[in-house]
Each structure stands twice: as structure tokens, then as C-alpha cells.
Computed example of a mutant assay.
Amino acid sequence: MAKVKVQRAREFMNLFRNYTIFIDGQKVGTIGNGQLIQLETSPGQHKISAKIDWCSSQEITFATEENVSKTFTVGGFKNAGFLFVAFVSTMVLHFLLNYFFGLNI
């Protein structure tokens, strides 16, 4: 059997949600935050994709060989952490300006 490894980076934005992994359109497993899963598949051409809630990745076509493993990495929007900090900072600044200085922006 050929092996497929799927690795997921640690993400704050999707901390409590799992990705569902599909190979050839069939659900083969789920992966949590920061996890690595190993799946077995037959040698040959396959398609892999991932889905989290309503968002999904594109299908990637790959070939596997007997006793050879392929590794894929799945993750969300790479700048999501920065955008989250920027959003919270803006909301805090808005609250402070409104509460302490009466500026209704």
C-alpha cells in the first residue's frame, strides 16, 4: 500500500474546527489543529482535497507508488492571525475613543 500523510499547521482562527480529508471524492479522515494523519491508498493516480465548514480546497492530482509516502499540508488563510489582531485593535481603539473622549466615529 502507498501512504499519504496530511499535516495541519497550528492555527488560532480554526482552533476548534477539523478539516475533512477526501481522496478520490471519498471521506478518508479528519484532522485537528496541529495534527498529522497517515492514510493508506492503492498505488496509482488519486485526487486529494480538504474541507472545513463551507470552505474547501481545490482537488490536487497526485501519483503514489508502493511503499512510498506523499505528504500534504493543509491550513487556512496565512494572514488570518494578523487580520484578527488588526480587527480587535481597531475595535478597542473605537471603544476607547468613544467612551473616554466622546468621539463617535
Rank of each mutant, 00 (worst) to 15 (best):
N33P: 13
S69P: 12
A86N: 09
T71H: 14
G81I: 14
A63Y: 12
T30I: 10
F12I: 06
M91P: 05
F84P: 08
I37C: 10
F101K: 09
F100T: 04
T90I: 09
L97Y: 13
V74E: 01
E66W: 13
V74W: 06
I60C: 14
S42V: 05
E65W: 11
D53W: 00
E11L: 04
S69F: 15
I37H: 12
I23L: 04
Q35I: 05
T90R: 09
V88C: 15
L39R: 08
T73R: 01
R17G: 02
S42F: 02
L39G: 07
V68W: 05
Q58L: 10
A50P: 01
G76T: 03
N18C: 08
F16G: 02
I48N: 04
N18K: 11
Y19M: 05
R10V: 03
E59V: 12
I23T: 04
Q58Y: 09
Q45N: 04
N79Q: 14
T41W: 05
V68K: 12
H46T: 03
M91K: 05
F95A: 04
F77S: 08
L36N: 04
D53H: 03
S57Q: 11
E40V: 07
Q58S: 09
I21P: 09
K27S: 15
V28E: 09
K47E: 00
K70H: 13
T71A: 14
V74G: 02
T61E: 15
N18V: 06
T41S: 00
N14C: 02
G29K: 15
D24I: 07
S49W: 04
E40Q: 04
E65F: 11
F12Y: 07
A63L: 14
H94D: 11
E40F: 01
A63F: 13
N33I: 05
Q26M: 14
F22P: 03
V88W: 12
A86T: 14
S49M: 09
G25S: 01
T41L: 00
F16Q: 02
F16D: 01
G32T: 02
Q45Y: 01
S49L: 10
I37K: 05
I31D: 07
F77L: 10
F100Q: 10
K27F: 12
F77V: 10
L96E: 11
I52T: 08
F95W: 05
T64C: 12
T20H: 10
T41D: 01
G44D: 04
F82N: 08
V74A: 00
F95K: 07
E65H: 12
N67A: 15
S42G: 08
H46W: 00
T71M: 14
T73F: 06
Q45L: 03
I21W: 08
S49K: 09
F22R: 00
R17N: 00
R10K: 04
F77Y: 13
T30R: 08
S42A: 07
F87A: 08
V68C: 05
R10W: 04
S89V: 09
R10H: 05
V88Q: 10
F12A: 06
A50H: 06
G25F: 03
L39V: 07
E66D: 15
Y99A: 13
G75N: 01
G34Y: 01
I37M: 10
S49C: 08
Q35A: 11
E11N: 06
Q38Y: 03
H94K: 12
